[in-house]
Design a binder for these strands. Structure first.
Length: 560
RNA sequence: GCGCCUGUAGCUCAAUUGGAUAGAGCAACGGACUUCGGAUCCGUGAGUUGGGGGUUCGACUCCUCUCAGGCGCGCCA
């Protein structure tokens, strides 16, 4: 269940420190946090620790004296074949062949369980992502949110969390009114009447399409006159939102994203939860009245922030107010941890929501907001601005048509959320054949092909215990085993740092080593023992490739 | 003006969260197929990590100043 080699080393280092203390070599009390990293050069080992540096600051001993103490203890462990002091203060660790062979066996018997952890301890976490306003189709930027949010959910569930994916629908407010007036105007045009299109309306062609559908779909309910009443607009709003949400769901499905729940903002107004949460904030003393409006004391939590309006002079609640009700509802549903994935254009909104949550009595870190930088669209040198209002945007569906789900997801997931990214449609299309995702998928398909061939030739795999894994001595074979051995730790770290892009880096490096192995070494047709060992190795590689690809929502094809 | 993010090879990006000689892909050039899939492999060139200063055994990473770009700063959502 826990295949972390770093944890194994860490425990041994702690044991070594304890032994040193017991035998009176040192008198130091606290154990420092142990950092184990993967060195850049092969001769520096499979893993290394800088513990001598850290300890020599606290103890009156040199790094080499400390290293000797630790090394003496570590050398006794049989999962390590070599332990060396590397001046000025590193200890380099070499994983033993036995342990690498054990890793292969673990992969084959545990399958995707090889990378599973239990540190989430069944705690309930929710990932809320995309949550685009139902005023238009999803665009490329939403694709980034979808890829990140969906993968994070997969990864956290590997870590032992109980994960829920949610989409929040902002179906009230001024934008919805603008939306329905836009459809109304298009409807009037269809009837041949002259209308001036609302200045602030939604100008995209999809509005015209929806108007056409409304004309048929709402035929009996729409008034014949050209006067737009509140009732008509409400009717149109409901119709339009439903149509747009259908399209959004369709795009998300194509992108491989499935939600556990869809929650509407209007629901919190209807259930009076918005007014309730505000009176409870008022009771706690975080709300005051000024200029006819109700204000929340953001400044009490963050000095640089200004107080924000909860209820307008007009008596209407702000988006902020209903969002507080929404987040309270999340915690009331029993969630221990809430992750929101937002675009950088919402950065300023983070402190006030965090403040509100703390005001309600929830710990500040029970909400984690992941901000991803916006996607800049380009077509060659030409920049395309993304505005749903003006109807100038590249819809996600078009990206899926042109580039495909696999490449799009891989692309979005191969950069950190902090980096702005240029999405060049020309390049994305052109790159398709040499896209990194195909390189990785090809490695997987190649393995499938080898395994099929072996099967067709009637090659029988001996029982696991009979396979002579010590025949795997080529550098490429060892490198592959090492990468597999380190995978659980990488997945663990990704679950903690919430940085899924590190998995695309791992995929590419393993695919590279596999392709090198493939060109240098024949799997089938070797001496029987060697063939068996290599078959087992590539099978393990395949399991891990598929596991990681699945975490990222990318398919692992048998053929391409 | 204030807050957040970014600046790394010609281009797009990594860099194990402060580690050792900063790495990949694309593009360019030169090689490798009668054997399991050439969507592959091998090699070559390409860098003052925007710039200055600081912190320490050690800095792309932290602090500070500065330049450039993006986003935000509504009784919009």
């Amino acid at each position: 269940m826990n295949n972390s080699v770093k944890l194994l080393i860490e425990n041994n280092l702690k044991k070594a420190l304890q032994e040193a203390k017991n035998s009176g070599l040192v008198s130091w009390e606290d154990l420092p946090p142990v950092f184990i990293s993967q060195p850049k050069r092969e001769e520096w080992g499979d893993l290394s620790t800088n513990l001598p540096f850290l300890l020599s600051e606290k103890w009156d001993l040199s790094t080499s004296e400390i290293a000797q103490i630790l090394i003496a203890s570590l050398q006794k462990e049989d999962f390590l074949s070599r332990v060396e002091f590397a001046p000025p203060g590193f200890i380099n660790l070499f994983i033993s062949p036995n342990y690498l062979h054990q890793t292969l066996e673990n992969i084959l018997t545990q399958k995707e369980g090889f990378t599973r952890f239990s540190y989430g301890e069944g705690r309930r976490v929710q990932v809320e992502f995309v949550s685009a306003n139902p005023t238009g189709p999803l665009h490329v930027g939403h694709g980034r949110a979808a890829a990140v949010g969906d993968s994070l959910a997969n990864i956290l569930s590997k870590a032992g969390y109980q994960v829920q994916k949610e989409y929040y629908v902002n179906d009230v407010g001024g934008q919805i009114e603008r939306l329905s007036r836009s459809v109304w105007a298009r409807l009037e045009e269809l009837e041949g009447r002259k209308v001036s299109f609302p200045e602030d309306g939604y100008k995209g062609d999809y509005i015209i399409q929806i108007a056409k559908e409304a004309k048929d779909g709402l035929r009996d309910k729409l008034p014949a006159s050209c006067k737009s009443s509140q009732k008509t607009l409400k009717l149109l709003a409901d119709f339009t939102i439903r149509k747009i949400l259908d399209k959004i769901k369709e795009d998300l499905t194509r992108f491989g994203v499935k939600y556990d729940s869809w929650v509407t903002e209007s629901g919190f107004h209807k259930g009076n939860q918005v007014s309730e949460v505000i009176s409870s904030l008022k009771d706690k003393g975080f709300v005051y009245e000024k200029g006819g409006a109700l204000w929340f004391k953001t400044s009490e939590f963050f000095k640089t922030e200004e107080d924000r309006v909860l209820r307008r002079k007009s008596g209407e609640y702000t988006y902020f107010a209903s969002d507080i009700a929404y987040h309270q509802d999340k915690f009331r549903r029993g969630l221990n941890w809430v992750i929101d994935v937002w675009g950088a254009d919402h950065i300023g909104y983070v402190p006030r929501l965090k403040a509100a949550i703390q005001a309600l009595g929830y710990p500040g870190d029970s909400l984690r907001v992941i901000i991803y930088q916006l996607v800049t669209l380009k077509r060659g040198e030409k920049r395309i601005s993304a505005s749903t209002r003006k109807g100038e945007f590249v819809p996600l569906s078009q990206v899926l048509d042109e580039v495909g789900k696999e490449a799009a997801r891989f692309f979005f997931l191969s950069r950190t959320c902090d980096s702005h990214l240029d999405f060049d449609l020309e390049l994305a299309k052109k790159q398709t054949p040499e896209n990194p995702v195909f390189y990785v998928q090809y490695a997987h398909a190649r393995i499938s092909s080898i395994l099929n061939k072996a099967k067709n030739k009637g090659t029988k795999m001996p029982p696991l215990s009979k396979v002579k894994l010590d025949l795997l001595v080529a550098p490429e074979e060892r490198k592959l085993m090492r990468e597999l051995c380190l995978l659980p730790d990488i997945i663990k770290e990704v679950g903690e740092s919430l940085e899924p892009h590190r998995l695309t880096v791992w995929l590419q490096s393993v695919a590279t080593i596999f392709h090198q192995f493939y060109t240098l070494h024949q799997v089938i047709g070797q001496d029987e023992d060697l063939s068996s060992a290599r078959l087992l190795l590539v099978k393990a590689v395949q399991i891990c490739l598929r596991d990681v690809l699945n975490l990222l929502g990318i398919s692992a094809p048998e053929k391409m």
